[in-house]
Amino acid sequence: MKKIEPNIVVKNLTMAYGEKLIQRDLSFTVNRGDIFIIMGGSGCGKSTLLRHLIGLQRPTAGSVSYGGKDFWAMDQSERELIMRSFGVLYQGGALWSSMTLSENIGLILEQYTDLPSSEIRERAALKLALVGLAGFDDYYPSEISGGMKKRAGLARAMALDPEILFFDEPSAGLDPISSRLLDDLILEIRDSLGSTIVVVSHELASIFAIGNNSVFLDAATKTMIASGDPKALLAECKDRTVHSFLTRGIPDMVKT
């Protein structure tokens, strides 16, 4: 059994755009080696929570801490150091469209290492091979399919062997098989690199296949209404919204 140590601690986090409240009073802990799922219906603030976790947005109230230190209380250089340990896979891949796949990965390596360019190219090729895109080094993002873009985005996210990987809806827009393969890849990364993984998702199959911890955001009450292992939630959670979400059941609203 691995030692359980908290990696990300969120305390009383409140998120808002101006005066529009998105979510309030979120508190949860992501442990090292977890595959942590952020779930909830569409428009409840899952992606916004992700933006807070990766340091793109400042909390309106509350704190997000990494390794016991409040992210926004650190000075700039410390924050950059923390952010360097993140890898993020955005919803559409967000590959830099004016660069080839190899350059996309290489750019990050160039920024943080002093490797010669031949070595950078080799490493980029290795990362592409890991996600099943060997040989696509010189393709531009516009020349590959949506699923391939996601995998290339994953290769880029893994460029610096990150401690924490964030995924924004990895299965969105993928067919069941590609989505399943991506799930397997996520598990493989966790097991081989020991990374902590945070996934925003509303794909039930994927949630149960990979998640071992989760938080459930609710759009109506604007706060979290459940947390824990998704499989345990399915068995035990009494909340009707959570239950109908996890069983793909009919919510009360439409039931007559």
Binding site: R51, I54, G55, L56, E80, M83, R84, F86, V88, Y90, Q91, G92, A94, L95, W96, S97, L107, I108, Q111, Y112, R156
Partner: peptide
């Protein structure tokens, strides 16, 4: 367009 495609966010999180 880079902003729309989250490419700018990707730059920021890559520390660039």
């Amino acid at each position: 367009t880079m902003e729309v495609n989250e490419e700018i966010d990707a730059l920021r999180t890559a520390g660039i």
